[in-house]
Design a protein around this nucleic acid. Structure first.
Lengths: 356, 356
DNA sequence: CTGTTAGCGCTTTCAG
DNA sequence: CTGAAAGCGCTAACAG
C-alpha cells in the first residue's frame, strides 16, 4: 500500500522490548510456554504500536489459510442467507473465516470461482451446485490435494465428499400425494434442470405418487425452466394453453409457484378451486400470496450448521481414510389454503402432516 | 495440508526446464519481456505439473492481496444481491476478488468482520452499515493505512471516504407528497434506527412534505423498529390502537410494509380505501401483496457497479490527495394500487412520476 | 530476453 | 521459558 508509515512487525515489537521475535510470535498466539507477564506486556505493546498480524507470512509458513470457501448459485434467497448464517456461526466458533462467492447458476462462473478458491488456498470448500454443472472436474484439484469439499442442498454424487441434503424424493412424493388427496388428478410439475439431483428426486417422488394412486404419468405436464419469477409467469401461460386444464400444480420452488399463481389468477383461474397449488422452500412469499401457499419447509440455518460441522470434523481428522459421511436432514410439509379444496377422494385430511 | 505429494513451485518448473525461477515467474504473469516460445512452454509445463500459484508468497512479496472486502448488514434481500452482482462484475473485470461478510445488523459483528478484513489484508473495503453502528472506529485502521473505503446505501458521513447513495430526503418527500395528494392527511411513518442517515433523511423528507402541505407533524405517528417482517405485524397492531386511525402509511422498506398490510387486512382494514400504503425498495414482494405496493425503485446492480468503479479508481490513483467523490444515484417512484384512492385534493394525479 | 539475489514477515524446530 | 536460524514461495531490482 501507499500508506506513509511502515507496518509494524513482530520484529519491531521484539526490538522495542529487547526480546526475540520468536517470543513475540508465541505470545501473540497465546502459546502456553511464555511467561505470563511478558505475554501481557507483548500484547499491550503490540496494541500500542498498532500491530496487525500478517496473514500472508503466517499462511505461507503454516501452509494453511484458515479460510473456508463457499460457492452457491445465488445469495438472494432467504434460504441461502439462513444457510450462510449457520455456516458462519460454526466456522467462526472454530477460528475459520468464510470466503463467499456466487455462481449465478452457471458452470462457467462456478469454475472461475473454484479457481479463485484454489489460488487463494482455502482450507476447505463448501458447495451448492449451479443448474448447469455437468461435471465436477473443477473440484478435482481440491480432492487431489485432500482439501475437503462438502456439498449441500444441490449436491453431487461423489463418494469422496460428504453431502448434506433432504430427502427430496420423499418430499416430492408427500406433496404430490397431498394434492391427490385434495382431489387433484391432473397435476403439473414445474421443475428445473434434471442435472441436479434435488430436482430429479422431486420429480421421481412426484411420479411415484401418481403411480401409487393409479394416475398415469404424463410427460406433457412436466415443465422445466429455471424456477425464476419470470419463468413462473411463462409457466402459467403454458398451463393456460393446456386442454384440459390441469387441476393441480406442484412447483419445485416457491418463487416460481407464486408468480405462476399470480398470472393464473389474472387470467381468471380461481385458486385453489380450479387448481390446487404447492411449492417448495417455505419462502416468506408463501404467506403473502393469496391463497397462502402449501410448501415444504426445511431449515437453512440448520443445514448450514450441519454442513459446517462436517467441514470442521474433516479438517480436524488428518486421517485421510475416514469415509465421507452424508447427512439427510428433516423437512416438513406445511399445508396452507392454496391446496385445500375440500373435495377429497380420501378420508385422510390432516391439516398439517409433519414428516414421519 | 495433509495431501501426500508436494505442491509444485516455480522452482520445480524452472528445474525441469533448466531455466531460472524468475523467468518462470515472469512467464506466468505474462510479462512482455519473455520469449514467446519459452513463455508458451512454461505455461504448458506448469499446467502439466499441476502448478497453482501461491498467493501467500506472492501477496507477501507484493504487499497486496487483490482482494476487496465487503461488509453488508444482510445478504438476503434482492437489493443486496443485485448490489453484490454489480460489484463483483466490476471487480472481476479488474482482477480483484471479493471477500463478503454480513454484520447481521449488529455493530459487534461488524467490528469483528472489519478485523477479519484487516488481518486478511484486503486492498479495499466496501461497506453498508448495520443499524446500530454508532461510530466507525473499527474502520480507522484502514483509513490510517490508506486502504480505501467506499460506503454505499447505508453510508457514514466521513470526508475521507466516497459515499454512494440515493437522495433519501427527496424520495421521502415525494412519496409522502404522493400519499397526501391521494387524500391522506394522517400518515404513519414506519422507519428504523435514526443513526442511519438513510432513515433519518426519509423521515426528514416526510416531515417536510407534511409541513409544505399544512399538516402538522405528529411524533406519535412515527414508528421505529427494525423493518423486519415481524416488526411489520407489530406495527400493524400498534396502528390498530390508534384513535383516530391513520389514513396512510409510509414504510421505509417493503418487507415491513407488506407484513403490516397483511395484519391490517386480517383486521378488517380495507386497503387502500381506509389507508393508503407506500413502501421503499421495489422488492418483488410489492407485486405479490394485494393491493400491489407503491414504492421507490433504485437499482442495486447499478449502485454496486458505481461503488466498485469508485473503488477501482481509488486503487489506481496512488495519489493520496484525491478528494473523496460521493455519488448520488437516481431513483423512481413507482405508483401502484396500494396508494391509489382516487379522492385527491389536488388535480395532480400522475400514475407514474419519475424523478425530475 | 534471462539469471542472480535479496528479502517480504512469520513459525518452528532445535538448543539452550 | 527464551533465542537463533532456517525457510515457506514468490517478485523485483539489478546486472548482464
Amino acid at each position: 500500500m501507499m500508506g506513509g508509515e511502515k507496518e509494524t512487525t513482530i520484529y519491531d515489537i521484539a526490538d522495542k522490548l529487547n526480546i526475540s521475535a520468536a517470543t513475540v510470535s508465541r505470545a501473540l498466539k497465546d502459546h502456553p510456554r511464555v511467561n505470563k507477564n511478558t505475554k501481557k506486556l507483548i500484547i499491550k505493546t503490540a496494541a500500542e504500536m498498532g500491530y496487525r498480524s500478517n496473514s500472508f507470512a503466517s499462511n505461507l509458513r503454516k501452509k494453511s489459510s484458515n479460510i473456508i470457501g463457499l460457492i452457491v448459485p445465488r445469495l438472494n434467497s432467504n434460504f441461502m442467507s439462513d444457510v450462510i448464517a449457520g455456516i458462519e456461526k460454526v466456522l467462526n466458533n472454530n477460528g475459520y473465516n468464510l470466503f463467499i462467492s456466487q455462481s449465478l447458476e452457471t458452470m462457467t462462473k462456478e469454475i472461475s470461482n473454484a479457481n479463485a478458491m484454489l489460488v487463494n488456498r482455502v482450507d476447505g470448500l463448501m458447495v451448492s451446485l449451479a443448474y448447469d454443472t455437468t461435471n465436477i472436474d473443477h473440484f478435482e484439484p481440491f480432492i487431489k490435494r485432500n482439501i475437503p469439499i462438502i456439498f449441500f442442498d444441490r449436491v453431487f454424487e461423489q463418494d469422496a465428499c460428504p453431502q448434506i441434503y433432504i430427502d427430496n424424493y420423499k418430499a416430492g412424493y408427500e406433496i404430490t400425494s397431498h394434492l391427490i388427496k385434495q382431489g387433484s388428478k391432473r397435476i403439473v410439475h414445474i421443475t428445473a434442470s434434471q442435472l441436479r439431483k434435488v430436482y430429479a428426486d422431486r420429480l421421481a417422488g412426484y411420479r411415484k405418487a401418481l403411480e401409487d394412486n393409479g394416475i398415469e404419468f404424463n410427460d406433457d405436464l412436466v415443465i422445466i425452466n429455471n424456477l425464476s419469477s419470470e419463468a413462473g409467469h411463462e409457466a402459467a401461460n403454458h398451463i393456460l394453453q393446456m386442454d384440459p386444464l390441469p387441476d393441480g400444480v406442484f412447483s419445485a420452488n416457491d418463487i416460481c409457484a407464486v408468480s405462476c399463481m399470480q398470472t393464473l389468477k389474472k387470467n381468471g383461474i380461481s385458486l385453489p378451486a380450479d387448481m390446487a397449488f404447492a411449492g417448495f422452500n417455505n419462502d416468506p412469499l408463501t404467506c403473502v400470496i393469496e391463497p397462502n401457499l402449501t410448501t415444504i419447509n426445511y431449515k437453512g440455518y440448520e443445514m448450514g450448521e450441519v454442513a459446517a460441522k462436517q467441514m470442521i470434523s474433516r479438517l480436524m481428522s488428518k486421517d485421510e481414510l475416514e469415509p465421507a459421511h452424508s447427512l439427510i436432514l428433516k423437512y416438513e410439509l406445511i399445508v396452507r389454503e392454496s391446496s385445500l379444496r375440500g373435495n377429497h377422494n380420501s378420508p385422510n385430511n390432516t391439516l398439517n402432516e409433519p414428516q414421519s
